[in-house]
């Protein structure tokens, strides 16, 4: 937002002093510094290949859960943030998310939305070298690496993908839904709705994947992440939870133990793995 106080002032006065005065006003935008291009870093691209167990996954197609339940997913969205490559000494080296042109993404995060196929590809600006793994968070951190407040900032001030109308925002408890999965399961001869909306800071899931990664000098390095949607409903110890074919209180949640379980499954059940 910009002030307009100088609009009515005399033109000369306003031109000479406008910028100086504006800088003294708290709600004036600061000039954006030019982007520094770090030539020691190269773009590396990650694609997602999505499955339900051994079956290819697509929205609205009938699939079978690990518990043997037929189900369909109508909506699957999640944020990816806080990316790092893990070097040979097991140190996580933070990397910046960038767009196709190599420019940093606003907020340094991406919204994966299966209704927008292009969103299942993301890019990072990585140091050259050989790495032994990848780490990232599923969700929106309280602050990002630059210190910008993210999860609880006023959403009406944010742009995509954190805009107030992104269908991932809880206005009543300001913060973003980290992961949203909605669909129908078939049980007792009927299709019944289920949904899990995972949010709230403690449920930011940290995913760590092992596998050799080599960002190449020409910026064409590409790896595939395997997303197994079934794993959202399987605990690290192999129990089927939450139960998408259970009672309505099992099938629908945006808080409590069931979404704790989904967040834990995202982090520790192999929801996302690095395809060899």
């Amino acid at each position: 937002m910009k002030h307009l106080f100088h609009r009515s002032a005399s033109a000369l006065f306003s031109v000479a002093l406008g910028a100086m005065l504006a800088s003294g006003c708290s709600d004036d935008a600061q000039p954006i510094p030019p982007v520094k291009v770090d030539t020691s870093r190269v773009v590396m691209t990650f694609d997602m290949e999505s499955v339900a167990g051994t079956t290819p996954f697509a929205l609205d197609s009938t699939i079978t859960s690990a518990a043997g339940v037929q189900y369909k997913v109508s909506k699957l969205r999640f944020f990816i943030s806080q990316l790092a490559l893990i070097d040979a000494s097991n140190t996580a080296v933070p990397v910046t998310m960038v767009d196709q042109a190599g420019q940093p993404l606003p907020y340094d995060l991406a919204l994966v939305d299966y209704e927008k196929p292009a969103s299942t590809t993301f890019r990072v600006l990585a140091p050259r070298g050989t790495f032994r793994g990848l780490a990232f968070s599923v969700g929106v951190p309280v602050v990002n690496a630059k210190g910008d407040s993210l999860n609880h900032a006023d959403a009406s001030l944010q742009t995509q993908p954190l805009d107030v109308d992104n269908d991932m925002y809880w206005g009543w408890n300001p913060g973003y839904i980290f992961l949203k999965v909605e669909g129908k399961s078939f049980a007792n001869d009927a299709w019944q709705s289920f949904f899990y909306h995972v949010g709230n800071d403690p449920r930011l899931s940290r995913v760590t994947l092992d596998g050799a990664l080599t960002p190449s000098a020409d910026g064409t390095a590409r790896r595939t992440l395997r997303v197994d949607v079934n794993k959202l409903f399987v605990t690290p110890s192999g129990t089927n939870s939450p139960d998408i074919a259970g009672s309505s209180t099992q099938r629908m949640a945006h808080s409590g133990a069931l979404v704790d379980s989904v967040a834990n499954n995202v982090a520790n059940s192999g929801f996302i793995t690095l395809k060899p």
Binding site: H152, D154, A155, W172, N173, P174
Partner: peptide, 18 residues
């Protein structure tokens, strides 16, 4: 009533979106 929203500015969107 549950105090979920910390500022008057952030409050505005809640009835609009409800």
């Amino acid at each position: 009533w549950d105090g979920g929203v910390p500022t008057l500015e952030q409050q505005v969107v809640v009835p609009i979106m409800n």
